[in-house]
């Protein structure tokens, strides 16, 4: 609670980690938050967040009543406009100020395990923005669906294909799993597609006996870096 008697989003966020999931928790118990952001560029320190889209996955289901979406006001147009299609003007009109969006998002995210394709950058820029705005460090665990795919591939989940044909980009996974990839490059659209891919990966993971959060959250390392 803050001085005005309102629950503080950031405080709520911190409190949610007082009791959270550990490595040994079964996958079905965890609240995953599948996330995508569109940004003004690829420099986590300098660029700004344009949109955030997220949807939760629990017990192997995408929970449509547990989703988040925001457009953020930002200062400069960059060449990334051609990817996500949102101009500064549009964001000024329909967006919310960054601190508001971040607070809301943290209140939504809580201790959810962040999931996304190449999610590292999204986590990095969110962390950077929160640190700059609130001096807050993002505590959430995260799972990169790309890494999960690569690990499953090593276990033999995608047999019978030549290495060259193994396209594990988000578009490639959509093709592989028959998910229509429309609405790509909007944050909510990509989050929803990634969530569908994630459902399939979870199922595959179960087949390879990856049953706990620790099992599926393990990082993938390129063979040449392994000891």
């Amino acid at each position: 609670m803050n001085l005005f008697g309102e629950t503080d989003d950031i405080q709520l966020y911190h409190e949610s980690f007082e009791q959270t999931w550990g490595d040994s928790d079964p996958v079905d118990h965890v609240r995953f938050v599948v996330l995508d952001t569109e940004t003004t560029g690829l420099d986590a320190r300098k660029d700004a967040i344009v949109t955030i889209g997220a949807v939760a996955v629990r017990r192997g289901q995408i929970m449509l009543d547990d989703q988040y979406e925001a457009m953020v006001k930002f200062a400069f147009n960059t060449s990334a406009v051609v990817v996500h299609g949102i101009t500064r003007e549009a964001a000024q009109e329909d967006g919310v100020d960054e601190p508001v969006a971040l607070r809301q998002f943290l209140a939504y995210l809580r201790n959810g395990v962040i999931v996304g394709h190449h999610i590292g950058f999204d986590v990095e820029i969110l962390g950077e923005r929160c640190r700059q705005r609130f001096g807050l460090d993002i505590q959430n665990r995260w799972i990169d669906t790309m890494e999960l795919t690569l690990r499953l591939e090593e276990m033999g989940a995608f047999p019978g294909e030549e290495d060259a044909k193994k396209d594990f980009s988000l578009d490639g996974l959509c093709r592989r799993f028959g998910i229509p990839p429309h609405d790509r490059h909007t944050a909510p659209g990509d989050a929803f597609i990634t969530a569908q891919v994630f459902l399939k990966l979870l199922r595959l993971a179960r087949r390879y006996n990856l049953m706990t959060l620790g099992d599926i959250a393990e990082r993938w390392q390129p063979p040449e870096e392994r000891g």
Binding site: Y68, E69, A70, H182, F192
Partner: peptide, 11 residues
């Protein structure tokens, strides 16, 4: 804030 791009796709 809850908006509905994903719900719109389902719809």
């Amino acid at each position: 804030m809850k908006t509905s791009s994903i719900s719109l796709r389902v719809a």
